[in-house]
Amino acid sequence: MLDLAPVALPAGVTLRLLHPDDGPALAAAYTRDRTRLEPWEPERPESYFTPEHHARTVPDELAAHRAGRTVPCVLTRDSEVVGRVTLSDVVAGPFRNAHLGYWLAGAVTGHGVMTAAVEALVTHARDVVGLHRLQAATLPHNHDSQGVLARTGFEKIGYAPRYLRIAGAWQDHVLFQRILHD
């Protein structure tokens, strides 16, 4: 999988590939925004918020990247991680598809950061990874995330009842896609 060069985004944020030493910064970011993220994410064990957990999982993510199965990125400002944007479940062959997932720290929301990050990763997915389609899913009441998807050219394609286990319950999701090649 070809690497993604760092991309400057609004509010002094940079989009870049995950680094092997990002574990402590990831743990700090998830801890800092834990309460804000809990309604939108799977339940996490206490160990998830430790540097040791991320030190163990970062190498797995980087191995999956080298194998072409994911594009794991972080959003940084100064030395802090302030978000993630990831292409996961990358499928080659006739499908050429991936799932898009993201989150952003409360301190940098409202400045166009995530819109710019998603657009940069869409370009990478099309021009470097060679994907044809990206898909994303949001909780029905996550209007901020749906706004990011709308601003970056994703279209609503459906509704999936009890799609993912989020915040301790199987929750419905709105499904989106963006076709990258016409």
Rank of each mutant, 00 (worst) to 15 (best):
R36A: 15
A92M: 02
V58R: 00
T14S: 09
G83E: 08
R133L: 03
G68N: 14
V148S: 00
V71P: 03
E52H: 13
L180Y: 01
T70R: 12
T123Q: 08
L149V: 01
G110M: 07
H53G: 15
E80K: 14
F49A: 06
E43L: 02
R84H: 06
W103V: 04
R16D: 04
G93Y: 03
G106V: 11
V90C: 00
T86K: 01
A27F: 02
L4N: 07
T109I: 08
Q177A: 14
P6G: 08
H181N: 09
W103T: 09
L131P: 04
A5P: 11
P45G: 04
R84D: 10
E46T: 04
E61V: 02
P140C: 14
R165V: 12
E119N: 10
R16Q: 06
V122C: 10
V113C: 14
H99I: 15
A169E: 13
R34D: 09
G93R: 02
L100V: 15
P10R: 03
K156C: 08
P42W: 00
I179Q: 04
G106I: 13
R151L: 00
G112T: 11
Q135L: 01
M1Y: 00
P20R: 04
W103E: 06
H141W: 14
T76W: 09
S145H: 04
E80D: 15
F176R: 09
P45R: 01
V81E: 11
A169W: 13
R44L: 03
P45D: 05
R165Q: 14
Q146G: 01
V71H: 03
R69H: 12
V7R: 06
T152A: 00
K156Y: 04
H132P: 02
R96W: 07
S88P: 00
H141D: 15
E38G: 12
R178P: 10
G158D: 08
R69A: 12
R84P: 10
A64E: 14
T70W: 05
D172Y: 07
